[in-house]
Each structure stands twice: as structure tokens, then as C-alpha cells.
Nucleic acid binder design. Structure first.
Length: 570
RNA sequence: GCGACCGUAGUCCAGUGGUUAGGACGGAUGCUUCCCAAGCCUCUGACCCGGGUUCGAAUCCCGGCGGUCGCACCA
């Protein structure tokens, strides 16, 4: 066993010590589902708090919490219903799976609109066989990566469990925009579960059917993709794998933008923010890189996308994606809902704008069209000079084509004072897979200590579920009384402590090392009498070094250490 | 979804038709002034589920569920 984590040994610790448990083991288990045990739950919360500290604390973004079950309309607009739903068939002979609509492509007009029965009909009508072995094709089945359900009794209202939390933010854009007093940039964060009905989940916690996300949606002015704090990170280095090749390059954030490797400053800033977050959590810098999505790899909504990848026992694995989703989401929701989801971009000073405009001639329209004149005039003025053909404009008013000749309108130059324009905000999305980050931290902090002959999790104090073990050297002679007093003072939901008086002292240290507890406090006989009366020892996990500190300062000391104070500065 | 392999205490392994399923580690308890998984006592705890064959099944057969790996699928 070496420094690189052995996935099995690590998973054994996780299961044994209560980080994660495969779900429903009592009933045989379900692949791709895991429960967080007490230690895992605490550690997961700690990761969330660090993420919140950066996005809500440092950047001042706002947090919401939206529904996990969404009506179908949401995912029709987002594109997930179409993109995540395929008709599949299997060859009855060689069992290979095929997209049913692809097989009938050469025979039918609109294969993607056909029902399963129509597709099966087409197989027999056109004699379509398995392209691999020529065998008969089986039944056509819909395979959708989203979990489907119904909302309310009956099956009238179709709903889906969200495959990402992002849509909850997009559908609340108007509320959030007003909350932010109609200003951009507008940063919104949300954490919660997403669901994908994976065909065959593998790789443990890496591909889960129900998973936790920490998503950030930053709405920016499409004309301004800068970021005010950009200068702070300009000189920080990033390990990048651009999609122009397969080479890894090291560039500063500033260089990456200047050389056009990363599309814009705001995207680059959040690539860098992601690096800061991951390193602060305890990802090994040598096993972290940012890889740009290939053009054909990009999700249907993404304009540019960088993945934070970490090296795990499974290979390079995506744990965070930072995407520029452009105006896709808001445009689509605007189109499907009929609501205006734009931002009014006020110019610094109003512009005098001169342009050609179609103006209705009300004097002629009124007598000619009577009651319809008002609608016609409005429709007419919505047209542009380019709509004039052969001196005429054709309008369609409630299904009726109306041809207007030039006496009913005038194309003239007008000068207007324009104070701003409506734009659909672009979205920068750093989306973090919480479970994947959680697992990566365990792998990167896993260390087999040759001297001690057991495994140690070198977790950063901020994420370690238990901050300090509190032990009496022996559970008698009043040592246990003092140790329990100290435990009571130190232990809180933010600074979890663990009292242990059983077995030998070495065994207790080992137990704490194995779950990543950074420090242990031990009450010994010197604590009770002699020159060191009133002091206790505190031991550092990674070095085994010990110092004596006053017992009544234990709680304060632990808080300071968690806050970043060095052990050697005690 | 297909194929191969696999399924025994919390964990790792033994048992391959026949008494009460055995060990190690772990966990609990007690003793020893016990600072790095020390020793000793005692205790705890398992044959994935269902059916079949058999006098008798953890063991053989069938089915299911689950796992690992490969293929396929997927971010």
C-alpha cells in the first residue's frame, strides 16, 4: 500500500467508521445510492460551509432553496426532456442497444417525432434489422435519464425530479432580479439534490443516481464579461488543458484570458475561485487540473465549459464544471413561458439615436379599418423598414392577412432619446458535485502511515468532522472528571469533540487519526498535581508532536487552531 | 441491458453434503500510573433472498437481488 489511496481500503474505512454507507443494505442495496453516516454528514456540512463562505461571504451572492420536483414544462424549456430522453431498442440476437430513431432515419421523415409503436411498425415495414448482426430488433423503449413522476392525483400533471438545481434559479429569475433591485451582476447559489436515473452506476460515489450539488448561477451583462475583483487573481497560476490539443499548460489567470484560452474574465475568475475553493478544502494541487470541454462534448446549453478534474484511483474525474451558458436558459424560459426575462441595461448617459422607423398614418387607417385600426396601427409600428416590400407591408391580425399600401404608413427618420436597452443576461455557472468533492477529499487525504502501521486521513481542520479527541490517560483517579469537563467546554456543533476513555491511549490516538481528527487532548497525572498542574497535552495528528496547554484554555485553543493558527505557534 | 467472476460476524478470511459454522482484526467489559493500535479475563456478532434435490444444504441445482470487472450507455 502506498500514499495513493487504495479505493477499497478507503471505502472500508468510510463504511466502518461511519462516513458513508451504501443505501438500503438491509434490503440488499441499490446501486448508485449512498447514505451519509454521522462523520460523513458532518464533513459534508463542513464542505458546504466553506463553499458558502466563499460565494455568500466573499462574493456576496444570495442563496435560495427551490423544489426538487418540477412540472414537465420546466424541463421542456431547459431542453432536458428532449436531450435526456431517447427511444432505445435492443437486438434480440446480439443484445446490442441502438437508438431506435437513428435506425429508421433513412426510411422515415421525422423519426424523432415517432412513437414507439410507429418505430416498431417501421422496423417490420422496411425490414430494418440489427446493423451489427442482422438479427431481429426488440421492443422500442423510452429511456429517459430523468426520474418521472406525477404531481397530484391522477396522471394529468407530469413532473420530473430535477437533474440539476440550476433550473430552480432560472425559473425564479424575475423574483431574484427584483430582489437585487434590477441590477447586474446577480449571483445566486443553491445547494440540494439532483437525480439522474443512471443505467448502470459504477465507480462508487462518482456516479450516483441521487446526488448533491452546490450550484452557482451568476447573471451578467452580456456586454460586460469582466469582473471587478479580477485584478486580485490575475497572477494566480492555473493548470489548463485547452481543447485545442491534449497538452497541459500552466498559465496565470491573466495570461489565459489575454491569449484567448479562457473566453472571458468573469469565467476565468470563477475557474480560479474554484481552484481556491478546492485547495482550501484539501484537494492536492498536484492532482488538480482544468480541462476545457471539446466542442462536441459541450452540453446543449453551454457556450464554453471548463471542468475541474482531480486525479483519483478511477483516473481523472470531473468534480466541478464552470460553464458559460450564454443566454440559453433565460431565452428558453422566456420563450416557453411568454414572460420577459431580460435586464434593462441603462446607458451611462442617454443616447440620441437616429434611425428609420415605420410610422402609422392614423388619419387614413381610422376611416378605412374602423374598429381594427388600433390593432393594425400597433402591429404596423412594430415592423421595421426591412419589412416593406414593393412599397407594401403585410400584417397578420388575428389570422387575417391585411395588405397595407404606402398611404397608410410612412418610413421616416426619427431621433429618440434612448436611456438603455433590454438584454438577456448571460449565465456563468460554477457547478460543484458535492459528493464527488467529498470523495476526492477522502482519497487525497488518505495516507498509510508505515511507522504507525495504520491509515490516517490528513483532512484539513476546516473539513475534518471531529476537530479534537479528548481523553483521560486512564479513566480513573479524577482524570476522567477533568477530561469530561474539557470535552463539555470544547464540544459544539461547529467544533465537534469526541470523548474516549476506553482501551489504551495509543489505540485512541489511532482511532482519531483514522477519521482525520487533527488534534487530541489528553489529561494525564501531571494535569492534577506537580509543576504542570492545570495543563493538558495536545497532540498534532500528522506529526505526533505534543505541547502542554492550560486546561481552561482548551476550547479557545482548538477554535484558534481550526481558524488557522499553526500548531508550532502554540 | 449482456457476459465473466463473486456473495459466511462491523472487516478480512477458513469451512465445499453430516455434531454446537472456526479464526484474526474490530467493538463492549474488567484489571494493570497506560502517551502512540501493549498484555490478560469475559462478552458480542454471520452463512444475501426464495424455491428445488436430499434423511440432512453455508456447501449441489434453478431463479431473484446485490457487488466487482469488461462491453454498452452516460457526464
Amino acid at each position: 500500500m502506498n500514499k495513493e489511496a487504495d479505493g477499497n481500503e478507503l471505502m472500508a474505512i468510510c463504511k466502518r467508521r461511519g462516513f458513508i454507507w451504501p443505501s438500503f443494505e438491509l434490503y440488499g442495496g441499490v446501486a448508485g445510492m449512498f447514505d451519509y453516516g454521522p462523520l460523513g454528514c458532518t464533513m459534508k456540512n463542513n464542505i458546504l460551509e466553506v463553499w458558502r463562505d466563499i460565494y455568500k461571504g466573499r462574493e456576496g451572492f444570495v442563496e435560495i432553496d427551490s423544489e426538487t420536483v418540477n412540472p414537465a414544462e420546466v424541463f421542456k424549456a431547459s431542453g432536458h426532456v428532449d436531450e435526456f430522453s431517447d427511444y432505445m431498442t435492443y437486438c434480440t440476437q446480439c443484445q446490442l442497444p441502438f437508438r431506435a430513431d437513428h435506425l429508421v432515419k433513412n426510411f422515415c421523415e421525422n423519426p424523432d417525432t415517432m412513437s414507439p409503436a410507429e418505430l416498431e411498425g417501421a422496423f417490420s415495414e422496411f425490414g430494418i434489422k440489427c446493423p451489427e448482426c442482422g438479427g431481429d430488433l426488440g421492443k422500442v423503449e423510452e429511456f429517459n435519464l430523468m426520474f418521472k413522476t406525477t404531481i397530484g392525483p391522477g396522471s394529468a400533471r407530469v413532473g420530473y425530479l430535477r437533474p440539476e438545481t440550476a433550473q430552480g434559479i432560472f425559473v425564479n429569475f424575475q423574483n431574484l432580479y427584483r430582489y437585487n433591485r434590477e441590477k447586474l451582476p446577480l449571483g445566486v447559489i443553491q445547494t440540494g439534490r439532483g437525480y439522474r436515473n443512471e443505467i448502470s452506476p459504477r465507480q462508487g460515489m462518482i456516479r450516483m443516481r441521487e446526488f448533491n450539488m452546490m450550484e452557482v448561477e451568476l447573471f451578467v451583462d452580456p456586454h460586460d464579461k469582466g469582473w471587478s475583483r479580477f485584478p486580485e487573481v490575475e497572477d494566480e497560476e492555473l493548470v489548463l488543458v485547452p481543447n485545442t490539443g491534449t497538452d497541459t499548460v500552466v498559465k496565470t489567470v491573466g495570461q489565459a484570458v489575454e491569449e484567448g484560452i479562457i473566453a472571458n474574465r468573469v469565467l476565468a475568475y470563477f475557474v480560479c475561485t474554484t481552484k481556491q475553493l478546492l485547495l482550501r478544502l484539501g484537494i492536492d494541487a498536484d492532482r488538480l487540473r482544468f480541462r476545457q470541454h471539446l466542442k462536441d462534448e459541450m452540453a446543449h446549453y453551454a457556450a464554453d465549459c471548463w471542468d475541474a478534474e482531480v486525479l483519483l484511483s478511477y483516473g481523472w474525474t470531473e468534480i466541478t464544471g464552470i460553464a458559460d451558458r450564454g443566454c440559453w436558459d433565460l431565452s428558453r424560459h422566456s420563450q416557453f413561458s411568454g414572460s420577459d426575462l431580460s435586464h434593462f441595461d441603462r446607458f451611462d448617459e442617454p443616447k440620441e439615436m437616429t434611425f428609420m422607423k415605420v410610422q402609422a398614418n392614423h388619419r387614413m387607417l381610422g376611416p378605412a379599418f374602423k374598429g381594427k385600426a388600433k390593432d393594425i396601427a400597433a402591429a404596423l409600428e412594430a415592423k421595421t423598414p426591412e419589412d416593406v416590400r414593393d412599397g407594401k407591408i403585410v400584417l397578420n391580425i388575428s389570422g387575417e392577412d391585411i395588405v397595407l399600401t404606402s398611404e397608410y404608413f410612412e418610413v421616416k427618420e426619427v431621433t429618440e432619446k434612448v436611456t438603455g436597452e433590454r438584454v438577456v443576461p448571460h449565465v456563468i455557472e460554477p457547478s460543484h458535485g458535492l459528493d464527488r468533492i467529498f470523495y476526492s477529499l477522502l482519497e487525497h487525504s488518505y495516507f498509510y502511515d508505515e511507522k504507525r502501521e495504520y491509515s490516517v486521513l490528513r483532512l484539513r481542520p476546516e473539513v475534518a468532522p471531529i476537530k479534537v479527541g479528548v481523553f483521560p490517560l486512564m479513566e480513573k483517579d479524577g482524570l476522567d472528571v477533568l477530561a469530561k469537563e474539557i470535552y463539555d467546554k470544547v464540544h459544539s456543533t461547529m467544533t465537534e469533540a469526541y470523548y474516549d476513555g476506553s482501551g489504551t491511549i495509543g489505540k485512541r490516538y489511532a482511532r482519531m487519526d483514522e477519521i482525520g481528527t487533527p488534534w487530541c487532548i489528553t489529561v494525564d497525572y501531571e494535569s492534577l498535581e506537580g509543576p504542570d498542574k492545570g495543563t493538558v497535552t495536545i497532540r498534532e495528528r500528522d506529526t505526533g508532536d505534543q505541547k502542554r496547554i492550560p486546561a481552561d484554555k482548551a476550547a479557545e485553543t482548538v477554535r484558534n487552531l481550526v481558524g488557522g493558527l499553526g500548531f508550532s505557534d502554540l
